[in-house]
Amino acid sequence: MSDALKQSLDLSMFWEYRAILLQGLIFNVLVFLCAASVALSVGLGAALLRINRLWPMRLIGTLHVEIFRNAPDYIMLVWVHFVLPLLIGIAIRRRVEFHPFTSAVIALGFVYSGYFAEGFRAGIQAIPQGNLDAGRSFGMSERLILWRIILPQVVRRMLPEALNLFVSMFKATTIVSLIAVPDLMYNVSMVIQQEMRPLPLYTGAAITYFLLIFLLSVGVRHFGERWRRTSMA
């Protein structure tokens, strides 16, 4: 048993392939950045729908949130990559294929838009009505009120929670290897196929991710505490 343990902790192999693995990690970061943008914008849109005056809009917003918050990442990934192109293809009568990167960004972006939408909604509804009354009394349009009064306060309030969601999202990007996006885990499996030595590689991947995410989490936690104390002027 100790032989296997030694083998798995022998990270020289992991180190040897570090260039390829680093490239993979960069893909994780890219997917994360794009998906995060999607999640933020779609999430904001859904949150605004949820508090709209018209009930059909509210219904759409609620459906969006409930569907995507309760959907497993992996099934969404598979569905977006394999089913959505077919549906679009049927609609426009042409063959459509998604690049795996695109599918990953759309799937993860929409799943996490559900979580962001809830956060945005809670933040918006926490703003005292008086702030809005004052804005309206000065003749500010609803759009002005949203951008100058509501959103700045919502962002300040929500920042710690949003950062936590971002860390979760980054962890979720590891599954994109399953639709052949060349991220870290994908490259790890490629190397394993070549070298036939899974122990150090999987262990190395686990340790790498652990260290990376650990540092991010600790950073976010500290920032969150300081933010809560000093912000909310």
Partner: peptide, 23 residues
């Protein structure tokens, strides 16, 4: 609403809860 907003400019309102924008 846009026209009403335009006319609201001519009225200054002071509220019981002040309603200053905290940010």
């Amino acid at each position: 609403l846009a026209e009403i907003n335009a006319m609201r400019r001519e009225l200054g309102v002071v509220f019981q809860q002040f309603n200053l924008w905290p940010h």
